[in-house]
């Protein structure tokens, strides 16, 4: 297939048609990214629980809706289940001294079995928008975007308020400087458990929304969630800083985390539109995250490093 044929096979209209769906999914992943932001940026912990708790949220929501619960109540239970997952990770970390990253992996691993149990040992459970009253669905993308937007606005506002309170400040201090926090009377371990719980509660909520949007819960739906969440956080930070610079306040940072999720999914839609193999998406995402995570380090290195001295002979700036 020649290049010309390839390009002529791309329909711009098709891209436009697929974009709203990408935005809706991106919004939901953006909510997930808010959870990742809390642990990764505020608590300074890379929490891998999310891969499991995202699925837990989806599984709980679908099973309860199938059992006749209203969708909002099912989502509420999903949040509680997510909080419980985060709590487990927190306990493994603070009470049993397991490094945070390992604690998250252990919880995530165990959640695979638990999620299967929740779904009645099925790897996949469908919930049809025709039979049940769902909060949002890919069948009606515009209203899904609106619903997602309203939920995102509510959550960003909630977190903006919460992290401005005394308790929220204590949580941020814990991530910023644990020894200072202890000296100021903050129970660092309690704050870590609290932060992990809140984070995974949000992640489970977005898992529950995603399951409704796509019309099913799948045992693998959360795989790689942490990487997508990180991608959203990082893209949001870069874009937010580029657009607002010094005017980027905390509300902006939170908002841009959600926007980062949307941008990430917009890129995914473009990649799929370009007919690149969708199986390569994870590789592609990992490369993006690796590149952006390394930027601050490389920037420092460009100012002072052995490699730079070697190049310049070390005489110019001595």
């Amino acid at each position: 297939m020649s290049i010309a044929v390839y390009f002529s096979s791309l329909s711009f209209l098709k891209l436009l048609k697929n974009m709203p769906g990408g935005v809706a999914q991106g919004l939901i992943w953006g909510l997930m990214a808010l959870g990742v932001y809390i642990t990764f940026r505020l608590l300074d912990v890379a929490d891998l629980t999310v891969d499991g708790s995202f699925t837990t949220g989806g599984a709980c929501t679908v099973m309860l809706i199938l059992a006749g619960w209203p969708a909002w109540a099912a989502l509420l239970v999903a949040v509680i289940a997510g909080v419980a997952a985060g709590f487990c990770t927190g306990m493994l970390h603070t009470k049993l001294g397991i490094p945070a990253i390992l604690a998250g992996i252990l919880t995530q691993f165990s959640l695979y079995s638990i999620n299967l149990h929740i779904m009645g040992m099925a790897a996949n459970k469908a919930v049809s928008v025709d039979k049940y009253d769902l909060v949002l669905s890919s069948r009606t993308v515009p209203s899904a975007i609106l619903t997602g937007f309203i939920i995102a606005l509510a959550l960003v506002s909630f977190f903006y308020w919460y992290f401005g309170t005394e308790q929220g400040s204590a949580l941020r201090a814990t991530g910023s400087n644990p020894s200072m926090s202890r000296a100021q009377g903050i129970d660092v371990n309690a704050m870590k458990v609290l932060g992990l719980s809140i984070s995974n509660g949000i992640v489970a909520l977005s898992g529950g929304l995603m399951a409704q949007y796509q019309g099913f819960a799948d045992i693998n739906m959360g795989r790689g969630a942490i990487v997508i969440g990180l991608a959203a956080v990082i893209i949001g930070e870069v874009v937010g800083r580029a657009l607002l610079g010094k005017h980027l306040n905390f509300y902006g940072t939170l908002s841009f985390t959600v926007i980062g999720g949307i941008l990430y999914y917009a890129v995914v839609v473009v990649v799929l539109w370009l007919k690149l193999n969708s199986n390569d998406l994870k590789l592609f995402t990992a490369i993006i995250v690796a590149v952006f995570l390394s930027v601050p380090y490389l920037r420092d290195q460009s100012k002072s490093s052995f490699a730079r001295l070697k190049k310049k002979g070390g005489s110019t700036n001595a």
Binding site: E166, Q167, Q184
Partner: peptide, 22 residues
């Protein structure tokens, strides 16, 4: 706490030994 504002640091210190609520 390096990632927090000057006044936020002071506010954390002002609440030393007190319950940190909402």
């Amino acid at each position: 706490a390096p990632n927090m504002q000057l006044e936020e640091n002071l506010a954390l210190a002002l609440r030393r030994g007190q319950r940190r609520g909402l």
